[in-house]
């Protein structure tokens, strides 16, 4: 229970009835918010108010509310996942916001051609799933596997693979990029397998298939601005993009796949 006084804000929220409709910003006041409330809890308060007034609540994606499912996806005051480093929206707390001068907060959906708006702040990110389906796996079936310790993997390599695998698939990298490129997301998955011995057998096929699918989905090209890395809630490194490019060129030039 917080001793702090409640905060008041004015939210400028993107409203869009459905994918076909034209969207617009609407303003909503939200009052008496605890500084210890999360950003999404603040939106809950707004939505309860709207519902009580008989208005349609604002739609936004969210689920685990602990920064790991990757479902929440808000563009707040011009930044994916809002202010703060290496957190998702659901880990953002209202104490981070200035409630002076009306405390205006602007909330938009991810903006990318490959992520069409479904409703309000909810976007369709199934393009990421299709990229994964194109080759983001080791092609083994269940069962008949040798002992887990049969392949020693140097700790440094395993840790690096883990750093890449930590990606939560939220799409902040795409939203942050002026080209709406998905290179950071795709390269994180490619890198995880490229680093590990388990991923070697399909290394070339995988990178070609995933990059190809990425292009088909309409994501933009990478121009190395690094905005994706700066805004990634999990700190996934640009190094992965470099690794994927190496893998890609190697695979594209090779005839052995």
């Amino acid at each position: 229970m917080s001793n702090h006084k409640g905060l008041n804000f004015t939210l400028k929220v993107w409203r869009q009835k459905n994918a076909a409709a034209k969207g617009e910003f609407k303003e909503y006041p939200v009052t008496n918010v605890s500084p210890d409330s999360s950003f999404l809890e603040m939106l809950d308060i707004m939505n309860e108010d709207l519902l009580h007034k008989g208005e349609d609540p604002v739609y936004f994606d969210h689920d685990c509310r602990e920064g790991i499912c990757g479902m929440c996806s808000l563009f707040i005051n011009g930044r994916p996942h809002g202010p703060g480093e290496e957190i998702t929206v659901c880990q953002l707390h209202m104490r981070e916001f200035n409630s002076q001068d009306g405390g205006v907060i602007t909330i938009e959906p991810w903006r990318a051609a490959a992520f069409p708006v479904i409703k309000d702040l909810v976007v369709d990110r199934t393009a990421f799933d299709r990229i994964q389906q194109a080759g983001g796996y080791v092609s083994i079936n269940t069962g008949g596997i040798p002992d887990a310790n049969a392949i020693p993997i140097p700790k440094e390599i395993a840790d690096k693979a883990m750093d890449a695998a930590t990606c939560i698939g939220c799409g902040a990298c795409v939203a942050a990029c002026k080209n709406a490129s998905a290179m950071l997301f795709v390269s994180a998955k490619v890198s995880q397998f490229s680093l590990l011995p388990q991923g070697q057998a399909e290394k070339s096929r995988r990178v070609l298939a995933m990059v190809n699918q990425m292009d088909e989905e309409g994501f933009g090209a990478c121009t190395n601005t690094g905005a994706c890395e700066a805004e990634c809630p999990k700190g996934v490194s640009l190094e992965n993009i470099a690794r994927m490019n190496r893998d890609y060129f190697g695979a594209a030039l090779s005839t052995e796949h």
Partner: peptide
């Protein structure tokens, strides 16, 4: 035990010791 084998084969990056084992 088979679960751990399965997950390692899928490329799950479990924590390892310096000797390379889990």
């Amino acid at each position: 035990n088979a679960i751990i084998d399965q997950c390692v084969a899928q490329g799950v990056p479990f924590a390892r010791e310096y000797g390379g084992l889990l």
